[in-house]
Amino acid sequence: MTTDTQMAPAELGESIITIDGLNKWYGQFHVLKDIDLDVKRGERIVICGPSGSGKSTLIRCINRLETHQEGSIVVDGIELTDDTKHINDIRREVGMVFQHFNLFPHLTVLENCTLAPIWVRKTPKREAEEIAMQYLERVKIPEQANKYPGQLSGGQQQRVAIARSLCMNPRVMLFDEPTSALDPEMIAEVLDVMVGLAEDGMTMLCVTHEMGFARKVANRVIFMDGGQIVEQNEPEEFFNNPQNDRTQLFLSQILQH
């Protein structure tokens, strides 16, 4: 990607996400095993690993798109339980960007961005639109505000999806393979937006295989396999001096081409 120089280390605050002894099963299949993870405010974490390693499932547990069976997840001081009110309290503070964008195709770009602020945050419509335009400018597509998602390129759609999440003014952003469905020329425009977010101090958890992005932006890289955290380290150490042979194999496979 752009340059190899690493960003200045983030000013880390107190814990915002605390995952303790997390276990999850799909039927008989044990998909997450004894996950412990503590995320500090302002921290930027990249999670990588082979497909089926549970990395998407892990971040989807954080905003309760998946339910877990054992262990605890505390987000911003609120523990995730079956209590719908708690779940919605957490979801409004945690933004998520999906692999396939998941924009609402029947709403314009602007309406995509204002729907949740208006109905969840009770922001007046005019104000919500102003905020949305600010974020659309930030992701460099204010001129598309009145178009429908189907009229945009993949890269533009993903930038709208990021803006849509930011309109809720979240404290944490989750990225679930945000560039995996994009053409090569569009990956850069999405990663640029994500780098900009990181520079502004957003707490980010990114499931991605963009190792250039990981090197540049992450404070910590986590490698998962078989539903477990195999290894985690600062990017410099992680890439240059992986401790586990599974990590070494994975890195050699994705970096050799």
Partner: peptide, 23 residues
């Protein structure tokens, strides 16, 4: 309707009826 549509609405904090009515 792809599952991602209601997941995206959930992730934004919209409850069941709002997800249904708007999305």
């Amino acid at each position: 309707i792809p599952k991602g549509q209601s997941e995206a609405a959930m992730a934004l904090g919209l409850g069941y009826w709002r997800r249904t009515v708007f999305i």
